[in-house]
Structure formats: structure tokens, C-alpha cells
């Protein structure tokens, strides 16, 4: 308001006299300096240094990358990582979609209960949750006992120290991350569209496959990409539930650095993980815009 009055007056005077400059607004940059210094010093610099090390340590060149990408041992690790991440993503979407859908339309009271359970699960210490699955899935654990009792299996299944356990544990951890955002997407779909389809004679299946799923698809895809990329770099759960024979990428990086003190190779593996992660986020940005990463931009 004051601004418009000011500039209107300003344009009148502008011809005859030099325009009076408005009091300079602080541009706000100094405010971000502390955070910027912190991020540059302790995030950008160390990660760059690690990547530099991957091409310099032990000797300059791409030797580390050749070793990493050229051996069957490491190929197995990459295969494990992508396999588990893909399975976890598929399972999370398959379980998460109906739950998100119900959560969006359920009577408020029940929705609140489900919501509280989701938050409790998400906020509970990761190690505590992983511990629960280590016990639940072990050879003599309750799940094996139950399956034997029901006569579904004769011998206990080896789920711990196996990718099965990792997949179950990771799906458990990722579910809230897909349900919560997807629930919001479905809630924003206009029910009138489905009403209209029903009036035009579409049955339930048609409404589901032709309208609800396509409308929810951007949300599903965004959530799925997020789960996939989080799973790729996950360390704790695969390390505890998978054991050393079923290593995944994050565990390999940790082991190369911690046990083998091979910084060059570890840095190279970290760089591969970094590039894959960033590539998937770039894909997500391209497909769904910047809304998810930097909300409120122009």
C-alpha cells in the first residue's frame, strides 16, 4: 500500500528531480551466513575431500573405480542393493496405497488411531525396531514357530542373515514414508470426479483403475522414488538383519573405511551411491517439479 503510493508519487517527481531512493532494505544474506559456513565447512568440504581421495588414494587415476565396477564381489553387492531397494519399494507401494487411501477417507476417529500408530512406529528408535525384527524373524522366533504351528512349513526358515529379513525389516521402516504423503495426495482428489464417473456408468474397478489410480499416480511415483533412494543408502537395518554374506552398498562403504581402512575404494563406493541418489532426485525434480524439495519457491 505504502509502496504503491510512494512509487506513484515518485514517478511524478522523476522527470524533474532525481528520484528519492527508498531506505535500503537489508537483503537478508547475512542471516544465512552462519548456516552456510557450517554447511560448507562440515558438509561440502569433507564430501568433496572424500571424492577427491577416491581418485588420488592410493595413486592418482581411476583405479578404485575400475576395481569397484570390475569385480564380481562388488557386483554382487550392487545387485543386492538394487534388488532389496526395488522389492522394498514395490511392497511399500502395494501395502501403502490401500492404507493411504483408507486413511484419507476413514471416519476421523479411526483415522486418528491409525495416524498415531504410524507416528509411533516412525518415531521409535530405529535400532529398537530393528532389534524387534531380529528377534521376531530368528530361527526359533515367534514367526517361525507360528508358521510351523499352522503347518505351513516343516523347518524354520532362515530369515535373519538373509535378504528376506532385510526386505521385511526395511518395508516396515519405509511404510510410513509412503503412507503419509500419499494420504495427502489422495485427500486432495476431488470426490466429485469419481461421482461423475459412477454416474456415467463406470463400475468400481473402472473407477479405481481409470480414475483413482491415475490421479494418485504422481503421489505414488514421488513416494516410491523416495523410498527407493532411501533404501539404496540404508545402513543400519541391512547390516543387522542381513549379516556379512548379504552385504549392501552402505555397509560395504562402512566396511571399506572402518575395517579395511581403504579410503580410496570406500570413497569411490560412496561416490557411486552419491551419484545414483542425486540422479534419482534429479529425475524426481524433473517429473514432479521443485515443490517437494524447496517448498514456497517462486
Amino acid at each position: 500500500m505504502a509502496q504503491t503510493v510512494y512509487s506513484a508519487a515518485g514517478s511524478d517527481i522523476a522527470q524533474s528531480a532525481p528520484q528519492v531512493k527508498p531506505k535500503r532494505q537489508p537483503n537478508g544474506f547475512p542471516a544465512v551466513v552462519p548456516a552456510l559456513v557450517l554447511i560448507v565447512l562440515f558438509f561440502v568440504v569433507p564430501i568433496t575431500a572424500l571424492l577427491v581421495r577416491s581418485v588420488l588414494d592410493p595413486k592418482p587415476g581411476l583405479g578404485n573405480y575400475a576395481q569397484l565396477l570390475g569385480s564380481w564381489t562388488y557386483a554382487r553387492v550392487f545387485a543386492n542393493t538394487f534388488e532389496v531397494a526395488a522389492l522394498v519399494t514395490i511392497l511399500s507401494v502395494a501395502i501403502g496405497f490401500p492404507v493411504a487411501w483408507m486413511l484419507a477417507i476413514m471416519p476421523r476417529r479411526w483415522g486418528a488411531v491409525i495416524f498415531a500408530i504410524l507416528l509411533l512406529s516412525m518415531w521409535t528408535n530405529l535400532l529398537a525396531r530393528t532389534y524387534a525384527w531380529m528377534v521376531l524373524l530368528q530361527r526359533t522366533g515367534p514367526i517361525n514357530k507360528l508358521l510351523i504351528y499352522l503347518g505351513l512349513i516343516d523347518h524354520p526358515l532362515a530369515m535373519v542373515n538373509d535378504l528376506t529379513g532385510v526386505t521385511i525389516g526395511m518395508t516396515y521402516i519405509m511404510l510410513p514414508f509412503i503412507i503419509l504423503p500419499l494420504q495427502g495426495v489422495i485427500k486432495n482428489i476431488d470426490p466429485a470426479i469419481l461421482q461423475a464417473a459412477a454416474l456415467c456408468g463406470a463400475n468400481r474397478w473402472k473407477c479405481l483403475t481409470r480414475i483413482l489410480i491415475p490421479l494418485a499416480l504422481p503421489g505414488v511415483a514421488a513416494g516410491a522414488l523416495m523410498v527407493f533412494v532411501m533404501s539404496l543408502g540404508y545402513f543400519v537395518t541391512p547390516a543387522l538383519l542381513g549379516g556379512t554374506s548379504n552385504m549392501m552398498l552402505a555397509e560395504l562403504i562402512a566396511q571399506l573405511v572402518q575395517s579395511l581402512v581403504n579410503w580410496g575404494l570406500g570413497g569411490a563406493a560412496a561416490f557411486v551411491l552419491l551419484i545414483v541418489t542425486l540422479a534419482i532426485y534429479a529425475l524426481q525434480l524433473r517429473l514432479f517439479g521443485a515443490g517437494r524439495l524447496s517448498h514456497g519457491g517462486q
Binding site: I39, V45, P46, I47, L50, A254, L274, S294
Partner: peptide, 29 residues
């Protein structure tokens, strides 16, 4: 100021990068 949106993205990056990469890097430093 110029680059405000880029800065915002930079500030959020630690959240989306795999923690293990950051852990190894900061440990080295």
C-alpha cells in the same frame, strides 16, 4: 539476494543424501 533458492536446496541436501556418505566424509575430516 541472488541464489536464494539454490542456497535453500543446499541447506536441505544433508537430509536427502545417504547418511553413510556423510558419516565417512566427516569421520575422515
Amino acid at each position: 539476494f541472488a541464489g536464494r533458492e539454490a542456497l535453500r536446496a543446499l541447506f536441505l541436501t544433508p537430509m536427502i543424501l545417504p547418511v553413510v556418505v556423510f558419516a565417512v566424509a566427516i569421520y575422515a575430516l
